[in-house]
């Protein structure tokens, strides 16, 4: 779906590469969590995926279409992006206007817009707010509107560029639940950028970035085993994984590395009933 072939990008030639000879491949319908500390290059990767930045070296392609100055308008139709600050990406004066913005840009006829805006808002459960002004919405609700704006265009990929960073715990939950809900009803590739590993636990695969390079890639359970190494590059494994690693050192072995509390409690329950 998305392919990076030895991609480098530098904002300033004197300061080295923000992304350094990065090669990666993201499958269709895969949910990828792209993690790394602030400044690890993960947001630059996101902007290289939809042509907001063009690589200084190497090639990017999205569903077979190579990214270049001639193609980035087409690529942006395939790759939608939700940004970090909920306030600063809300263009419209009302929820409906904002969802329609992308459709207007692509020149959809009005009747089609009306249909798509309504169905996209229903998919993120924000239809009841369609006439609201943005200053009446919470951060989580604004991000859901941003998602609706992207869904309306029906892209193949949605990138969440630290979309949860500025939200409170309820907003974070809201965002993750919305994504999980969407994955149940439709096929789409998701690139979820975060520095919070407990959010990354929901992904199919985690790509860890450090200093502009891919540092590791694997299933969440695999990645979370590298607790000390991750902490060295400024990341923190989820609390449950930390607790499990303490148990592990003291002779408790579970079938699989627990990702959430429920997995841990369930497995412990099974284990203790055998004892």
């Amino acid at each position: 779906m998305i392919e990076f072939n030895k991609v480098s990008y530098s904002y300033d030639k004197n300061r080295g590469n923000a992304v350094d000879e990065l090669s990666l491949f993201i499958e269709q319908n895969e949910w990828i969590a792209l993690i790394g500390h602030n400044g690890s290059g993960k947001s630059t990767v996101a902007k290289l995926m939809n042509g907001l930045l063009l690589p200084t070296e190497g090639n990017v392609s999205v569903s077979g279409l190579p990214l270049s100055e001639d193609t980035y308008w087409d690529i942006r139709k395939k790759v939608g992006m939700v940004f970090q600050n909920p306030e600063n990406q809300f263009v419209g004066t009302t929820v409906m206007d904002d969802v329609a913005f992308g459709l207007e840009n692509l020149g959809f006829p009005r009747e089609e817009m009306v249909k798509r805006v309504a169905s996209a808002l229903k998919e993120v459960d924000m239809y009841a707010f369609k006439d609201q002004a943005p200053n009446r919405l919470s951060g989580g609700q604004k991000q859901r509107v941003a998602i609706a704006g992207i869904l309306a265009i029906m892209p193949e990929v949605i990138i969440f560029d630290e979309a949860s960073t500025m939200l409170d715990p309820n907003g974070k939950k809201e965002l993750l639940e919305t994504i999980k809900g969407l994955r149940k009803i439709k096929k789409m590739t998701i690139v979820y950028i975060t520095h919070d590993l407990s959010e990354a636990a929901y992904a199919d695969r985690i790509i860890v970035m450090n200093e502009g390079k891919q540092w590791m890639s694997g299933k969440p359970r695999e990645v979370f085993q590298y607790r000390d190494e991750l902490s060295e590059i400024g990341l923190e494994i989820p609390l449950i994984s930390s607790i499990y690693s303490g148990m592990n050192k003291h002779g408790v072995k579970l079938e699989k590395e627990p990702l959430h509390m429920k997995e841990l409690v369930d497995q412990l329950w099974k284990l203790s009933s055998k004892m």
Partner: peptide
């Protein structure tokens, strides 16, 4: 509740908590 493990919180770190759980299980 589920396992009847007598664990309390006394400002232990996550890995110490893991240790407590392991010991309580044993």
């Amino acid at each position: 509740q589920a396992l009847g493990l007598p664990i309390t919180y006394h400002h232990q770190s996550p890995s110490e908590l893991g240790k407590d759980i392991a010991q309580a299980l044993h």
